[in-house]
């Protein structure tokens, strides 16, 4: 029994939720036609990335008409979308919203906000403060049990502790939306950033014997190109497909709980993980520091 997942590699229009929303609805409908149970969009897919002072202008509240419209489209198919989420106390988060059954099912607020090089996120966004795994309903198909998911937004992935926190709560699939720009074009190395993500996603999938779904955006913002390359890595660390080309596309992949089971029998890393040792050592280090 397989579960179909769709990767919506889009090129959002910067600061234009009105234009990006219908594009999301089209992609969700196309994913549903392709029998997908879940469609994953890139980071900040409803707004674009280099927003700067536009952040408050494009922010959505959890009960906004835009998110309600998207949620209403998510009855047969679930979706993970990216937006600026505003809270009652006027904080703005770089968020990934999991929509299912016509409502907001789970929210991840990006914890690690890159503020170096060409990135300036901490100037504009509040830091999220948790990594929570959740049961993803995935209505189509007949899985042996519900899938468990965990979201990591772009820079979150560059911190192995974040991935470990999620894995510890039981995760079958890491959902990893990103807005990763082109940097480094040296000969024989392909794109520097693409190379790093390839190594990282394969390693995490293999070490945590879980699927990893990486959806990066494409297009240009103020001269900066985003390289796409969206892909799925299986629990054995091998990609399920070639990385998507650098253009707007909807990719489909098939996931099986049975494959997870086989990988975890062959490679029982999760079973053998010594959380007690890790916790004790963390406590010791913390006390020593104090």
């Amino acid at each position: 029994m397989t579960t179909v997942v769709a990767l919506a590699q889009v090129a959002p229009r910067l600061g234009d939720v009105e234009a990006n929303l219908p594009r999301h609805l089209e992609m969700i409908a196309e994913a549903a036609r392709g029998e997908a149970s879940l469609v994953v969009f890139p980071e900040l897919s409803l707004t674009g990335y280099f927003l700067k002072d536009l952040v408050p202008d494009v922010a959505l509240r959890r009960n906004s008409a835009e998110l309600q419209t998207l949620a209403a489209a998510c009855t047969d198919v679930d979706a993970l979308v990216g937006c600026v989420l505003e809270t009652d106390d006027s904080r703005f988060y770089n968020a990934a919203i999991y929509l299912s059954g016509g409502r907001v099912h789970h929210v991840h607020r990006k914890v690690y906000l890159p503020t170096y090089g060409l990135f300036d996120e901490a100037r504009y966004f509040a830091h999220g403060d948790s990594f929570r795994a959740f049961a993803a309903p995935l209505r189509k198909g007949e899985p042996l049990r519900p899938w468990r998911a965990g979201a990591l937004i772009c820079e979150d992935m560059w911190h192995p502790s974040a991935v470990t926190q999620l894995a510890r709560q039981g995760v079958d699939m890491f959902l990893c939306p990103s807005a990763s720009p082109v940097r480094g074009v040296g000969r024989g190395t392909a794109l520097g950033t693409a190379r790093s993500y390839d190594a990282m996603t394969r390693t995490y999938a293999a070490l945590f014997t879980a699927y990893l779904i990486h959806v990066n955006r494409v297009g240009y913002e103020d001269g900066v190109a985003f390289w796409g390359g969206s892909h799925i890595v299986g629990p054995d660390g091998l990609p399920l497909c070639e990385p998507a080309p650098r253009e707007e596309t909807l990719l489909f992949g098939r996931l099986e709980l049975a494959a997870l089971r086989r990988s975890r029998i062959a490679n029982p890393l999760l079973r053998d993980e010594r959380h007690d040792v890790n916790d004790a050592e963390t406590d010791r280090i913390r006390h020593a520091r104090n």
Partner: peptide
């Protein structure tokens, strides 16, 4: 040294 194919694709797209 640059990957001229990749650079061309990025700059044409730009």
């Amino acid at each position: 040294a640059i990957d001229t194919e990749v650079v061309t694709e990025i700059l044409v797209g730009f």
